[in-house]
């Protein structure tokens, strides 16, 4: 998870490196730690380290990690020559490694040679059927080919074996959302919330999915999860505040003249969220405030 302080550190390092202030290795380490996709920067700064023998020897054994990182970044930037050279260097150092074999298969995959890549992954899986990373690559490859249903099928098979893999659950949830299969996506988000209950963004996505599904019961649950997102982020998540407003007005529309006590609670929550939103906009984007008030007026609870 990328926390606020880590994000600030990353931005600071990034501008420092961009202005030639050094610290490229720290920057690359942070990117690796936070698992952020900045392939162009990794390629640029990684190569400056790898091409300078003095800098390269100063990082010691981490050199090989950097070669791998740069190779993947090069694949992402479609600089196949760099990727190929990196893999060649790694292959020379570790002739028997399965991890390098996977990189080679990824090179085939990036070039669009699906059949060869598939063959390579299959042979890797034959040697070691419990190789999680290779399983995941196969799913990603099915997705890249445009065969989403095959990706879903493989991912489901994978999750039957490795149920604790939250990254895979997240991927499956995102695929289901893209296929508009919201019930299944909701199930995946439930799994994610169970495995990592303190990550507000899973609560937020779950609430989004429930709100999209609609219906009184789902809306009420969605409202609760938006509220828990607000709780976990200290009220700094604008999307959750908007979600609360939307849920409250939708519930008010569905239960017109219904139970009084819940109606009151609904209104209170709505007005609280509106106040928080207005305060936030006043502080960070005063020019957008009229837009916000007109939007919120159209959402006004009909009572």
């Amino acid at each position: 998870m990328v926390s606020k302080s880590e994000e600030e550190q990353l931005n600071r390092l990034e501008s420092q490196v961009e202005n030639g202030g050094g610290g490229a290795w720290e920057y690359l380490c942070l990117i690796r730690k936070l698992k952020i996709r900045r392939s162009d920067n990794v390629l640029k700064y990684g190569l400056t380290i790898l091409n300078d023998p003095k800098k390269r020897s100063s990082i010691g054994n981490d050199e090989w990690t950097l070669y791998e990182q740069v190779a993947i970044a090069a694949l992402d930037c479609h600089s196949y020559d760099v990727a190929k050279d990196c893999i060649k260097v790694l292959r020379k150092k570790f002739p028997e490694s399965k991890r390098i074999a996977r990189l080679e298969a990824m090179l085939l995959e990036a070039k669009g040679l699906w059949e060869e890549a598939d063959k390579a992954y299959s042979s890797l899986l034959e040697d070691n059927p419990l190789d999680q990373a290779t399983h995941k690559r196969r799913v990603a490859m099915a997705k890249a080919e445009g065969d989403i249903l095959k990706a879903v099928e493989w991912l489901n098979k994978y999750l039957e074996i490795f149920m604790a893999d939250h990254e895979a659950w997240r991927e499956l949830a995102e695929i289901y959302v893209s296929l508009q299969m919201y019930k299944q996506a909701a199930f995946c988000y439930e799994e994610l919330i169970l495995s990592q209950p303190t990550v507000p963004l899973y609560h937020l996505s779950y609430a989004d999915v429930l709100y999209t599904l609609g219906g009184l019961e789902n809306l009420q649950t969605a409202k609760k999860y938006y509220a828990s997102t607000i709780d976990l982020t200290g009220g700094k998540n604008t999307r959750a505040l908007y979600g609360t407003c939307l849920c409250a007005s939708a519930i008010a529309q569905l239960t017109k003249g219904g139970r009084n006590r819940e109606d009151k609670e609904n209104q209170d929550l709505h007005s609280l969220a509106v106040t928080a939103l207005e305060k936030d906009y006043k502080k960070r984007a005063p020019s957008k405030l009229p837009l916000l008030t007109s939007t919120l007026r159209s959402l006004k609870l009909s009572s």
């Binding site: 926390s3 606020k4 698992k35 997705k143 890249a144 990550v199 982020t233």
Partner: peptide, 29 residues
């Protein structure tokens, strides 16, 4: 978890499911 330093602002990119045939292919480096 909700303090200014610990607040989660974004999820990591799902690097293990990264795919390479994105629109970046059209940009010539």
């Amino acid at each position: 978890p909700d303090s200014e330093e610990n607040r989660v602002v974004s999820l990591p990119a799902n690097m293990e499911f990264m795919i390479f045939n994105h629109r970046g292919r059209a940009i010539i480096s």
